[in-house]
Computed example of a mutant assay.
Amino acid sequence: MCDAKRYEEAISLFNYFFNESQTLPNMLSCNLIIKAHCDQGCLDDALDLFSHIVLDGRLSPGVDTYLILTKALVDAKRLDEACVLVASMGRC
């Protein structure tokens, strides 16, 4: 769905499986939804999902996650946040 740019449907399906059905997502699924939010211009929603993943602790964000978010932050000219995110990557 994300490849077809059907972001709303992909996000809805993600929410159904992982919020309503309480199924644990994998990092690939999370990265796709984070990228979908970024592609839609909903960077704060992507960062909220990232924060939830980090705080939950059951999944570990990988390099791909940081690349997606860093690029989105730089594109949005939120350079200070991008630098903080890159610096936090060293602690993971």
Rank of each mutant, 00 (worst) to 15 (best):
L73Q: 06
T70Y: 02
N15R: 15
S51D: 14
L85H: 01
D80W: 01
A46F: 07
F14V: 11
L24T: 14
L47D: 09
K71W: 03
C30H: 08
R78K: 13
A46H: 11
N19K: 10
A87V: 01
A46Y: 11
C2A: 07
G41D: 08
V54S: 00
D56G: 15
F17T: 05
I33P: 09
S88P: 00
C83P: 00
D56E: 10
F14D: 09
Q40F: 01
M89D: 00
V86N: 02
S21N: 12
R6M: 13
R91T: 00
I68S: 02
K77C: 08
L85D: 00
D3M: 04
C2F: 01
L73S: 04
C83Q: 14
K71C: 06
D75G: 05
C92F: 02
S29Y: 04
M89P: 00
E81R: 14
K35W: 03
F14L: 07
S88Y: 01
R91W: 00
L69M: 09
I33N: 13
F18Q: 05
Y7W: 08
S88W: 00
L49H: 11
L32T: 14
S29K: 08
S88K: 08
G57H: 03
E81A: 14
L13C: 06
T65Y: 04
A10L: 02
C30M: 06
C92L: 04
A82C: 02
L67K: 06
V84R: 10
E81Y: 02
C30D: 12
N15Y: 07
I34V: 15
G57F: 01
R6C: 03
R91G: 02
S29E: 13
I53N: 07
C42H: 15
